[in-house]
Amino acid sequence: MNAEDTEKSFRKLLKESGKTLRALSPADLLFVVGDFWLSTTPEGLREENGDGLVAYFELTSRGKGIQYEFGVNRIMCFPPAPEQYSAWLPALKLRCSLGYKATAEIFQLKAPVSTFGCWDKTKSKDFFDSVTNSPQFQLIKSYTHFSSGVALSECDAPWGNPEHSTKGFEWAKT
């Protein structure tokens, strides 16, 4: 599979499983995207840190007022051109997200915004445990989302460590 085909493949997986994005709970979203990541390997990605997941909780404003978004993004990074150095390399981001109304409980969280990343499939259990045990996840698991989305888009990824020294995972979220 090409990285450019991940959105189409993910939508096909959802359809074949009888699930719709609109009907997914936060746990469903995390594990469906996680299973898709674990079971597929796009071609042409860089060997180290070329395919990873970034789960996030973020306050956003996407035209529907302020919402609390939970998303799981699959980041697919391409290798650098051998003849040139660039601090940022081309990548694709498959963004899968659920949007919730921003409630008073969300603003009462010690840290309503949070990000988790995993680029090693052998450490996926720790990643899933970290996300599901977070206070943000514990709060929204009983909420009903009012928006959902899946989109593949281009982005830039750092050359080395995916958790950039000054930008963290901000580059991978929005």
Rank of each mutant, 00 (worst) to 15 (best):
E69I: 05
A91Y: 01
V33P: 12
E69G: 04
C96L: 06
S61R: 13
F57C: 11
Y68L: 07
V32Y: 07
G65D: 10
E47T: 08
N49E: 10
T60Y: 14
G65I: 03
P26T: 10
D126V: 07
A91I: 04
P80T: 13
E48F: 14
V113Q: 13
W88P: 02
L92T: 05
F127S: 12
S39P: 03
T115F: 09
P80Q: 14
K121G: 04
P80G: 07
E69V: 08
E69Q: 09
T20L: 02
K64Q: 06
S25M: 02
S114N: 07
T40H: 15
G99V: 02
S86I: 04
T20Q: 15
F36E: 10
L92H: 09
F31C: 13
L109F: 00
F127I: 05
D126H: 11
A81Y: 11
V72P: 09
R62E: 02
L98F: 03
A87L: 12
A104Y: 05
D120G: 01
A27R: 06
I75H: 01
L24N: 08
P80A: 13
I75G: 00
W37E: 07
L53Y: 09
A27F: 02
P90E: 03
S86R: 14
A55Q: 06
L98P: 12
F128A: 12
L24T: 01
G71Y: 08
C118A: 05
K121A: 09
E43G: 10
S86C: 03
R62C: 00
G52C: 11
G44W: 11
R46N: 13
T40A: 06
A55C: 12
P26F: 02
T41H: 11
T41A: 13
E48C: 11
V72A: 02
S61C: 05
K101M: 08
L29P: 15
L94C: 14
E48Q: 14
F57P: 01
V33M: 14
K101G: 06
A81W: 11
G34C: 05
F70S: 13
R22S: 10
F127E: 04
Y85F: 15
F128S: 09
L89K: 12
K93R: 09
T40I: 04
L94F: 10
V32H: 03
L45S: 10
K121I: 05
P42W: 03
I66K: 14
G52W: 07
P42L: 07
C118L: 01
R62S: 00
G99D: 08
F128Q: 14
P26Q: 04
L45W: 12
Y68P: 08
T103C: 00
P82T: 11
R95Q: 09
V32K: 07
G34H: 09
Q108K: 14
T41F: 01
K125Y: 03
F36M: 15
D28P: 01
M76V: 02
E69N: 02
G117N: 07
S124Q: 13
L94A: 05
G34F: 06
T115N: 11
D28F: 12
T122C: 03
T40S: 13
A27T: 08
G63H: 08
T20M: 10
R74G: 12
S86G: 09
A27W: 07
R74E: 15
L98Q: 12
K64S: 10
P112V: 13
C77G: 07
K123D: 00
K110V: 14
